[in-house]
């Protein structure tokens, strides 16, 4: 697995690098392919996940083709989105939810931004737990989801309850920060290692960028 600061830097750089271009080359696919190789043991799981995400991209490209009748644009949209989504999913695959906070923190972002990302992650983590708990409650109380008004009403209540609990949680978070003497400091224990995987991934991105500059300057 690649270290958090490099993962964040590469995912941002690669996304912009691909998104802002009108021509793509085979060399652009080396990064996602390498990442796929790094995660080769979980290939089946990743493929299923990507299939779900990219099916939506395929439908989007198909709609562009059908309505605009422009095959080149729809193919470019499809290729670009697949490259960006696949690379991002693979970079963050199997990481815990605090990975982005760790990355931002070790990249030297201001404490305010880091703590904001930490608190946002904490809220997401707790909300997901809350949602899971609500789902279990519905199951335990014999709720059978249907496509009728009663089911939608229950979904509405569920949304309301989760929102209310999140608001309550954020209020308590403020109290917790006060009780624990928060003065803007969160110490991170992360030691950023730079192994062969980091070197390989960084070299591929640089190579891709140099190739692009060479093609562009010709």
């Amino acid at each position: 697995m690649i270290n958090p600061p490099l993962s964040i830097s590469i995912s941002i750089f690669y996304s912009f690098f691909i998104a802002l271009r009108s021509e793509l080359y085979i060399i652009d696919a080396i990064l996602p392919l390498t990442l796929l190789y790094i995660h080769r043991r979980e290939l089946k799981k990743i493929a299923l996940h990507l299939l779900k995400v990219e099916l939506f991209l395929f439908i989007l490209a198909l709609l562009v083709y059908l309505f605009e009748n422009d095959l080149d644009t729809s193919l470019l949209i499809l290729q670009r989105s697949i490259l960006i989504v696949t690379t991002t999913v693979l970079i963050f695959w199997g990481r815990d939810s605090f990975f982005i906070y760790k990355g931002l923190s070790s990249l030297g972002f201001p404490t305010k931004i880091c703590s904001m990302s930490l608190f946002a992650t904490k809220m997401i983590e707790l909300s997901l737990k809350e949602l899971e708990r609500s789902k279990e409650t519905l199951r335990a109380r014999c709720f059978k989801p249907k496509t009728d008004i009663k089911s939608y009403k229950v979904y509405g209540w569920l949304f309301g309850v989760v929102t209310f609990k999140i608001l309550q949680r954020s209020n308590v978070l403020a109290q917790s920060l006060k009780a624990r003497g928060f003065r803007g400091e969160i110490a991170s224990k992360l030691e950023v290692g730079f192994g062969y995987k980091e070197y390989v991934v960084l070299s591929i991105v640089l190579l891709d960028f140099i190739f692009f500059l060479w093609v562009y300057s010709r």
């Binding site: 978070l173 624990r180 969160i186 224990k189």
Partner: peptide
């Protein structure tokens, strides 16, 4: 603040930092 230790009813409400060590060290750093 440093003289008063407050244990929340729900531990999840009290945690701020992601890992155990970082959370225990949180108040000290602050």
């Amino acid at each position: 603040r440093g003289d008063i230790g407050y244990l929340f009813q729900d531990s999840d409400d009290q945690f701020i930092a992601p890992t155990v060590l970082e959370d225990v060290a949180f108040s000290l750093v602050n």
